[in-house]
Design a protein around this nucleic acid. Sequence first.
DNA 1: TACATTATTGTACTTAGTACAAATTATAAT
DNA 2: ATTATAATTTGTACTAAGTACAATAATGTA
Lengths: 136, 136
Amino acid sequence: MQLLFEDLKEKLKKKNINLSYQRLKVLEYLTQVRTHPTVDQIFTDLQKDISTLSKTTVYNTLRVLVQAGLVRVITIEDNETRYDIDVRDHGHFKCESCGKIYDFNIDMNSLIVKDLNNFKIDDKNVYFKGICPQCL
Amino acid sequence: MQLLFEDLKEKLKKKNINLSYQRLKVLEYLTQVRTHPTVDQIFTDLQKDISTLSKTTVYNTLRVLVQAGLVRVITIEDNETRYDIDVRDHGHFKCESCGKIYDFNIDMNSLIVKDLNNFKIDDKNVYFKGICPQCL
DNA sequence: TACATTATTGTACTTAGTACAAATTATAAT
DNA sequence: ATTATAATTTGTACTAAGTACAATAATGTA
Ligand SMILES: [Mn+2]
Ligand SMILES: [Mn+2]
Ligand SMILES: [Zn+2]
Ligand SMILES: [Zn+2]
């Protein structure tokens, strides 16, 4: 636990992000809670530990982490922005019954599109919707 | 033009959607303006013709059209929901410089994911981000 | 045409996210 | 360690997307 915290400090330092307790806590939360949480979930849970926490700080911190490439944004539903500590290429499946978001492996390099020959592609996203096994 | 309008009437009737001038106009707009417009763009443009148009009506109409499968929702950026009259399988590329959204062909059936064997998949989405040729 | 049903409109409301200035905390220099 | 400087956090006010709802208008049917 103490060890993890030191690892996260390293992670931020390597990206030239100044250390703060709030930033470490948000990063720790995303490392432990792998459900692609929303800002509100992060805020509500962390507020139990940090009673003075402001939601603006959560927004600010996430923006910083995303810009540094430590966290990615998941946009599946327009009304709920979610955050993912796993920045490696992978797809997302959202169950329309329970709302849970599952990760799946997909080879983004195999998604070669001839229509986009002269386009500079920076980011590839794949997401599916349907019903998960538990809800079926 | 008159012919097109009759076609759209047919399209709605086939889906058991009651006819109204507003619904026809929204459908006509999406048929003609293929830029994946937002609610606000649709509303602002149609208001020039229909001065009494309410934004609520645009929201209601789009919900009806999406439920009927005549229109699909495009969620790339969390703050801008866009609408597409082309409901066939295809991918979207958003230029991060000019904001334009391009269509591209992609074979969704080739996206077979072994991690999702027991999942019921209803909807597959692929979108890329980057810079378009005009902006490069 | 008359009636019943459905759609439109306008307003009020909710919620996600942003702007900004004051207060606090972290970093660097002495 | 103390101080000065810079960066971050916090709280409030604000914006904008979207929804709820009741009154009004339009549409479909007998
Ligand atoms: Mn993920
Ligand atoms: Mn399209
Ligand atoms: Zn489920
Ligand atoms: Zn462009």
